[in-house]
Design a protein around this nucleic acid. Sequence first.
DNA 1: TCTCATTCTTGAACATGTTCAAAACAACGC
DNA 2: GCGTTGTTTTGAACATGTTCAAGAATGAGA
Lengths: 224, 224
Amino acid sequence: MPRKSAKSDATRARILEAALRVFRERGFHDATMREVASAAGVAVGAAYYYFDSKTALVMAFYDDSQAHLVPAIEDSLAQSRTLEQRLRVIVTHKFDYFAPNRALMSALSAHIDPRHPLSPFGAGTADIRNRDIAFFARAVSDSGVRLAPSIAPYLPRLLWLYQMGLMLYWVYDDSPRQERTRQLFFKSLQIILFAIKIAAIPVLRPIYRPAGELLRMAYGEDKP
Amino acid sequence: MPRKSAKSDATRARILEAALRVFRERGFHDATMREVASAAGVAVGAAYYYFDSKTALVMAFYDDSQAHLVPAIEDSLAQSRTLEQRLRVIVTHKFDYFAPNRALMSALSAHIDPRHPLSPFGAGTADIRNRDIAFFARAVSDSGVRLAPSIAPYLPRLLWLYQMGLMLYWVYDDSPRQERTRQLFFKSLQIILFAIKIAAIPVLRPIYRPAGELLRMAYGEDKP
DNA sequence: TCTCATTCTTGAACATGTTCAAAACAACGC
DNA sequence: GCGTTGTTTTGAACATGTTCAAGAATGAGA
């Protein structure tokens, strides 16, 4: 809704910062919107003027993260060659950036329902999601990996889904420094890359045909 | 909390029935606890005497479902031989039983957080989950399928997870009669069974070694 | 039949996310 | 300057999940 002045932007930022601070200190659930508003020095209504809901504050943080992540990831992608390196770069950058607010992200995972405006799978977040998927498309393209044509169109979306699963595990990973997620990531990445390479071998393609059919069924047959 | 009389059981059942009715008619989110209580002819407090929360009502329905599903599934399992048939039986029975309240189940999927008492992955629901996993253990055992020893101990839990994913897709599947989920199920089941069989071939085991390691990392190395 | 402890039941009170009408402020044309 | 129009801010009001102190019902033991 708010679109105009620079002062408006500042207020919005002030509310968002205050919210993240309060959420970190008291936990997302225990923090109240009244606390957030008071920490930002505004009335409750102001918070709702800039953000649709309490969860939308966390989503705004997630959204803003792209501004920081895009250049960082682009740089690292340019320096890395193999697909494995590239995928590591994307996921590691994300984990590192989100780490200080890791517990917060659980607020987002509460909305699995694709019809909810804040669901990571819904139409309401298509922009964020597509920008995100673009990372993986970029990581795959000109990485020198030969791809089976039946799975190639779905690979970026599949990798995005894989990374969402990792993030979910990571958010609730209570091992020290989330070391468990890191190990799981490396090991699973190995397996996935192996499967991708295998699928591209012409002789083995018949074996992978059902996988291609499954993907077509699940994602539909849209061109892009 | 409530433990004693038969009248108590009746009241509890009356509240649960009323809740499901109201949830079905008005949707889980739009329905209020006051409506539920009024439909059951009790005060709001009574509902909270028997159920910990609004979501707990849906969980109670899910819990009760086992009483209906166990005999039905046991019977069908006894009549089916192949692992494919058996897995179809389990999932199909569940879908059929939950179908009238399909939209309701979305209330459960809201709690991904394993620390939440109602999370399907948390300690609070371990009993329900283990009973559920037992179906898959039973489907696998004496089904005549040779298993790779590195994945065998995890297979029931893996299949349970697979079925949870299917349920999630099913809950939000808006294709007529959820035909899409059904097709996805059949196709993915084919692939999974193929992978399981391949993994058991001695010559190919080295290829599957990383998968075993991954599972050990993800699930830990507890004996049962 | 009369305690009295336990189990149920009640509905008002509470906490908190969210809405909204009204007020304050800002910008702009005259 | 002064009205007009659009933006921002306010805080009380609202809706609803949940709690809780108090009362009713129940049943066991004397």
